[in-house]
């Protein structure tokens, strides 16, 4: 007997694969989305700083824009710079 596979419809889940589970700013799961977004994933991406701390892009942008002086990482207080 031989088995011929006609179709294999697999199921998987995606993850940002960040070290932490939740965003340090909004406290929501990284694999979820920030409070302003409706859909996770492409619509609400993560961003890493040079300090290797990750946030929802929307969360850190709001944070950065709210700072009068040079913005710092909310977690480690180092100057915030987007990791390339």
């Amino acid at each position: 007997m031989k088995v011929k596979i006609l179709q294999w419809h697999a199921v998987g889940s995606w993850t940002w694969d960040a070290q932490d589970e939740t965003c340090g700013i909004c406290r929501m799961a990284f694999d979820g989305c920030c409070p302003d977004c409706k859909f996770p994933g492409d619509d609400c991406p993560l961003i890493w700083g040079v300090c290797n701390h990750a946030y929802h892009l929307h969360c850190i942008l709001k944070w950065v824009n709210s700072q009068n002086s040079t913005p710092h990482c909310p977690m480690c207080r180092r100057e915030w710079q987007f990791k390339a």
Binding site: V3, A10, W14
Partner: peptide
């Protein structure tokens, strides 16, 4: 940097057994 993790027991398979 998103990763895909399979849940290998889930899904559907269409196959043909050839005798």
């Amino acid at each position: 940097p998103r990763k895909l993790m399979w849940k290998k027991n889930l899904g559907t398979v269409k196959l043909e057994l050839q005798f």
